[in-house]
Design a protein around this nucleic acid. Sequence first.
DNA 1: GGGCCGTTTTGAAAGCTTTCAAAATTATGG
DNA 2: CCATAATTTTGAAAGCTTTCAAAACGGCCC
Lengths: 354, 354
Amino acid sequence: MANMQEIARRAGVSLGTVSHVLNNTANVREPKRTRVLEAVQAAGYQPSQLARGLRRDTTNMIGMIIPDITNPFFPAVVRGAEDVAFSNGYRLILCNTDNDHSKELIHLNELRTYLPAGLIVIPSNFSELTTQAESYRRAGTGVVCIDRLPKNWSGDSVTADNEAGAHNATRHLIQLGHTRLATITGPLHLTNAKERLGGFKRAMKEAKLPLSPEYAQETSFDKQGGHAKTLILLRLIPRPTAIFAGNDMIALGALLAIREAGLRCPKEISIIGFDDLDLGETTNPSLSSVSQSGYQLGTTASRLLLDRREGDTSPAKHIVLETLLKLRNSVAPPPDEPQKNSSARRPRGSKHDA
Amino acid sequence: MANMQEIARRAGVSLGTVSHVLNNTANVREPKRTRVLEAVQAAGYQPSQLARGLRRDTTNMIGMIIPDITNPFFPAVVRGAEDVAFSNGYRLILCNTDNDHSKELIHLNELRTYLPAGLIVIPSNFSELTTQAESYRRAGTGVVCIDRLPKNWSGDSVTADNEAGAHNATRHLIQLGHTRLATITGPLHLTNAKERLGGFKRAMKEAKLPLSPEYAQETSFDKQGGHAKTLILLRLIPRPTAIFAGNDMIALGALLAIREAGLRCPKEISIIGFDDLDLGETTNPSLSSVSQSGYQLGTTASRLLLDRREGDTSPAKHIVLETLLKLRNSVAPPPDEPQKNSSARRPRGSKHDA
DNA sequence: GGGCCGTTTTGAAAGCTTTCAAAATTATGG
DNA sequence: CCATAATTTTGAAAGCTTTCAAAACGGCCC
């Protein structure tokens, strides 16, 4: 591939001049300027990002570390980040951690050697991001933490207003007349899960409703977890008439469990999830959910990173994005009559129904 | 950050020796060897990928170009590619094209300047990949094309057996007794859409069933497309009793349209999709689909790329992955009685039903 | 102990760009 | 038209690694 030397030769100027034209880093008078540009065109020259990065001590790559692109919430985040990055000439290196902090560490250490323009990170479980980011910052590389925060994080962050979203959803259930609410949370060492539980609890307290511990189950942010914990909730006496799920995957598991148990959603049990994934539209019943924009999470993080790069040295920013309660068909007022709890144990169509 | 110079100094050896130890590129006798390794440990040294890439004339980055990570089929592909890449020390640069060939071209031109180890590409509409890849190949950089192929592609490729999958699905519908089948295909300039239509047609022909053109609708690979074209199909006389959809998003749109039209799936109309996305499990009815493994598509592509890099110079490989018909609740035998076609126009619960 | 051979080790060059100080050119003012 | 100031242009250095030819080393045999 053509290099700058070649362009300089073709245009009959020095290496430095070519560089100045390309980067607008000094005035270059007219005859030469166009000669250079023409030579660039003619040769189809594009500067080596490697040499450039090496010399400038920074590249136009952004390291994006996420748990798992396969989890339906994250693609939108990545896409948002990429869109802003791309339109500003930056590119994304995508790294999956599977929530494993040792894998995260490998990525953090390796990415450094690419001299990235910055990092956007959704921290893994028990992430050591806080310590690692320190060394990035010393090198002048921005690190933005999104979606949830690791221990002691004090840098830039972009998150959803988990507390308010959960509070709002819970209050809605209460206003419909529900008094026996339960929640299935994600892992409580994750800040977003904890905040959502906080919002739920606050709404309960404000309504002076009791909440004994077995009505707040903790599990992983997935279908299996939601399914298993819902089965537990359905056996409680009195049985809850509404479940606030920590995210849509949990809500989906809950829906399945409820269906299996022979109960009907929303008639006998209401469900609200969190995230408002596309798949919530097509379930039966369609899933009510606290909507947060993953895309916006991504764009905001990229924007923040680029602002920092362009010299914004203001103190750490903690951007919190609004959520919106999206009501679909999985919520209804509680059933009037006191339910016969025993029916929960009998799958629909089982012989005992006869 | 520490550099090799520093390590050499600490270990009391020359630059060359450090490099040899790190790359196992020459024997280094015992006292020095460990001294170097210790110095590396102590300094937390990691070689600059930029300098290394510049010198070696190639990096450990793989460019991955896809239409849109937000489309639910692609995350698994990316994940598969990343897993194999990662465990071999390679990293992924993710690029979305939105199926826009000019955006694809930008990525192709820019990625070159990173001296990537290779490219994995799902070509955009009207992709110019074939010409571009030529210049990559001249530079010794592998390009693997997956999922669908651009015009005149003769390089390595990994695709699903679209023809057989579609054929199999269609045959299943026919065996159930359906005689009036329709299909909604993706854009027919995409090879995968075309192959699926081919499989459908072959099954029809083998069963000696007629297929007039209006029973094969073409649209984009999305919900809107599926919805719109299904409305058209439902108005046909005689109305089809089964639809083979070009992918699950189309199938989803079809399902919605059928529901809106007051018809029941699978009782009155059967649907089979393609891709077997997760969301197909949770729709109502759950979606039957031709299952192809996006993950395997990704792993195979990465594997192929790495094999090439390790010196495999055999002629272009065209790997075709098996599909599997996944039956769920969206298919059933056709209704016995000749349906009253007019009902298709009436939404469920409309006054005309009375 | 000297000469020779095979192995280790070294130092410098190369890869491509940016940037800095210095050189060359042009402009300005008297 | 000269001296000086301002602007352009240049060439070399630096950034960090790999690699190649050459130098140093160690062992072996006579």
